[in-house]
Simulated scan of single mutants.
Amino acid sequence: MTERTDFASYVDARWPDLVGGLEDEGVPGDRARLAVAEALLAARRSWHRRVRDEQVDVTLWAEARERAGLPVRPGEPVPHAVRPRDPHDGPEEWLERAGEVRAARRRRGALRAVVGLAVVALLAAGWAWWAAQPEPPAVRAEANRLPVAWYAEGELHLEDVVVELPEVEAFVADGPAVVARLRTGEVVRVDAEGGVEPADETSALDAVLTPPPLLGLGAYDVLVESVPLPGGGWAHLVDSARRAGAEDELRQSETGRRAVVVCPTELTCDEPVTVVAGGTVRLR
């Protein structure tokens, strides 16, 4: 079964329960349908991963409740059999509406980000820069092989998308999103779908991290950066061609590599995952 068919089958089966569950808690019908459609639409791009890694009945119900303005109940699944399936009350129209709402929201976010960048640039470069302001950052779908966000060659790699953002000076994870400081001094928030909006919070960007030591480094390995993982533990960026030994005859016949090592605890680490990218690679 294809990913698209799998998603469509889930929507067809669970639509009445998702909508009915919200209506039973006092959410007006149209608002309930739009909230459910927005939650489903947001999950479609990463559906295969979510089905593999999550209990989608639990996470989607929490997201639909949040979008409808109801308190989230962690661990609670979608109610079952609260409404019979009505062929005249399907999800298609509401998914289309949700797509229009999301597109409008992203356009507004991109516009605000561009305007914010333009204001800063006007102070530095004047009207000439304003006449040549850049297009909103390009976004492409691409699954991240690493368990953390990373940056290289002017591209910010999130969980399911890659965002072209060539002026990033520093960044930190903010849930599935990222808060980044650009070289202009502007601080932006890049959401999980690649939308860019101005941000005010900068304390996390300036925080000094104190990671635990990474055990088992090889003779030619250098620890470059470390970042904490949301569920605990650390991810470490290691470069294996940075020490003076890289100049000897043996190392000249090889190519250095960079890899991310995930350590759930100070004493246990997973196998390194090689980072394939040119130029400087950063985790924050």
Rank of each mutant, 00 (worst) to 15 (best):
W127I: 12
W129C: 01
E135M: 07
E135C: 02
A141N: 02
A141V: 12
E142T: 06
N144P: 05
N144L: 07
Y151W: 12
Y151G: 03
G154P: 00
E155R: 14
E155C: 03
L156M: 09
H157V: 04
L158N: 00
E159Y: 06
V161H: 00
V161P: 00
L165Y: 00
A173E: 15
D174A: 15
D174S: 14
V178K: 00
T184F: 05
G185K: 07
E186R: 13
E186A: 15
D191M: 06
D191Q: 08
A192I: 03
G194D: 00
T202A: 13
A204G: 10
V208S: 08
L209H: 11
T210E: 15
P211S: 12
P212I: 04
L215H: 15
G218S: 05
G218N: 10
Y220N: 13
D221I: 01
L223C: 09
L223K: 09
A235Q: 06
H236Q: 09
L237S: 05
V238G: 03
A241T: 04
R242I: 01
A244D: 13
G245W: 10
D248C: 08
D248L: 08
E249M: 12
R251Q: 15
S253K: 11
G256V: 08
A259K: 06
C263D: 04
T265F: 11
E266W: 13
D270H: 15
E271K: 12
